[in-house]
Design a protein around this nucleic acid. Structure first.
Lengths: 111, 111
DNA sequence: CAAAAATGATCGATATAAGAGGCATAAAGT
DNA sequence: ACTTTATGCCTCTTATATCGATCATTTTTG
């Protein structure tokens, strides 16, 4: 019964919340109800609520389906130049002292 | 017993495959084995394999954790967010020691 | 305003993802 | 060459995410 509760990094939580919020916003802009979108994705309304709240435990495929159905870009397809620059940035970020990264708010657990 | 098999759009499949591939690549670049990364994320090796294969049914939190642990940047989609993020980055860059910025090539001799 | 629709929240049942392990093959290292 | 180490791919079991329903608010609309 007592399995360790899973922990997620701050980055994960932030990203999930951002993505869920985007989906919710895009859905409303398209004037769809939760029931509307849930039906189109083929999931229960309660599941869509979990998605829009950014719960870490929902299946990634369901999240991506909802996102694409309301037109939220999933990127990953960024231009090469942007991709390499972001990679460079994240590499460099690892060099920052923990105190600085904490101040930035993007300290994800270890290193 | 006879629940409909779930279907996913091509975009979802492509994005998942791309993301999984990037995680796999980044893991190898860091010379980590599947067992290494799986242990750090706190998941079974079989689950990590599912992630790197881009299976739609894995929990999104686990995928994002794996991605961040190996430094795969998660979606920075819209130009607006990109702008603010880059601004934040350049601010933070000013905090870097000169030695690091020189290594990055950001330091153009003078000052 | 009242009626209708949308949302937030909870819950039991059950389909299923994740874990743990095993085994064979492939790479890497010595 | 041999010996680790890593990977691919199974099965079985267990933990749990999803469903579908219900109810209370909140928001919209007529």
């Amino acid at each position: 019964m007592n399995h360790h509760p899973r922990t997620y990094s701050r980055v994960t939580h932030q990203t999930l919340a951002l993505l869920g919020g985007r989906i919710r916003l895009a859905r409303k802009q398209r004037k769809m109800s939760e029931a509307d979108l849930a039906e189109r994705v083929g999931i229960a309304r309660s599941t869509l609520q979990a998605i829009e709240k950014g719960h870490p435990t929902v299946e990634i495929g369901l999240v991506f389906e909802a996102a694409t159905l309301v037109g939220v870009p999933l990127f990953v397809d960024t231009p090469a130049r942007l991709g390499t620059e972001l990679a460079r940035v994240s590499e460099t970020m690892a060099l920052l002292p923990r105190s600085v990264r904490r101040a930035r708010g993007d300290l994800n657990d270890d290193f």
